[in-house]
């Protein structure tokens, strides 16, 4: 349990590259303990990349990410393991181990890291499956699940160690509105019950405003809005307003380069 209003994650001027291509530009924000932090933005703007930095799957430059005040770029193996034992992650594609059943997927971290008896682990697995609305699917293989079910099984796995910090990449993509609303409630009650801190990437405006305590809106690797849901709603940045009112781009933003590409095709 963590007391609220404590800064858990601090990001300062984070830049990120794939090869020469820059995908994150000078990001700065803070995530407070026992809050739901929502990350929104257009597809391809770098949200999943940002999560990778926060969980240590992509190395961050020194001085850009602090967790509980400590710069993660200098962490050693033991410090990372320590951190990884405290967090849970839902990957955008679920990333279930496809050679194991759903139940074995969820049980794996418990089997490796705890001395819990088998019966206890089985009950815990069944409880986690029930929380995400997948009761009775434990014996199935990941390939036998639908996309939305795979996502929820991944969430159940992320919850198996009762993490202090939960990172979720688009929990409700591919889900019907009823199930998606159920997941929103689950995330809220995880925060409420366990005092969890959540970092949630989502495209669903409604769900973002329902669960978020703090949010950022990203566009092309930059943060264009950062604040509480009310502050974001009041912001009169045109791009943010366009995002919130779900208006499509009026014209193709790279119209000239699009035309030049078309012409290149003809010339060859």
């Amino acid at each position: 349990m963590t007391e609220p209003d404590r800064e858990l994650i601090r990001v300062r001027g984070l830049n990120s590259f794939y090869g020469r291509k820059q995908v994150l530009r000078d990001l700065s924000f803070s995530v407070e303990a026992n809050r739901i932090f929502v990350i929104m933005g257009m597809s391809g703007c770098g949200k999943s990349t940002l999560l990778k930095h926060l969980v240590g799957l992509k190395p961050s430059p020194p001085g850009s990410i602090y967790i509980e005040g400590k710069d993660i770029s200098g962490w050693n193996h033991a410090q990372w393991n320590n951190y990884w034992l405290r967090i849970g992650i839902l990957f955008q594609n679920g990333a279930l181990f496809n050679s194991m059943t759903v139940a074995q997927n969820i049980a794996l971290p418990l089997m490796v890291h705890t001395n819990l008896p088998k019966e206890i682990i089985e009950i815990m697995v069944e409880m986690k499956l029930h929380m995400v609305g997948l009761s009775g699917t434990g014996a199935l293989m990941p390939s036998q699940l639908s996309g939305g079910m795979r996502k929820r099984a991944g969430l159940a796995r992320a919850l198996s160690m009762d993490p202090e910090i939960l990172f979720v990449d688009e929990p409700s993509s591919g889900l019907d509105p009823i199930t998606a609303a159920g997941l929103d409630e689950l995330l809220l009650s995880l925060k409420e019950t366990f005092g969890m801190t959540l970092v949630v990437v989502t495209h669903e405006l409604e769900s973002a405003f329902r669960i978020g305590d703090q949010m950022v809106v990203m566009d092309q690797g930059r943060i264009i809005a950062y604040g509480t849901p009310e502050e974001i709603r009041q912001m009169n940045d045109p791009r943010v307003q366009q995002f919130l009112s779900r208006r499509p781009d009026e014209e193709h933003r790279d119209y000239d380069s699009y035309i030049s590409r078309l012409c290149k095709v003809k010339r060859r």
């Binding site: 349990m1 705890t114 819990l116 019966e119 206890i120 682990i121 009950i123 815990m124 409880m127 986690k128 009762d162 366990f194």
Partner: peptide, 13 residues
């Protein structure tokens, strides 16, 4: 004072 899901599983068992 506090219980986690492993504790709940124990009580259920």
């Amino acid at each position: 004072e506090w219980i986690d899901t492993a504790g709940v599983a124990l009580l259920v068992l």
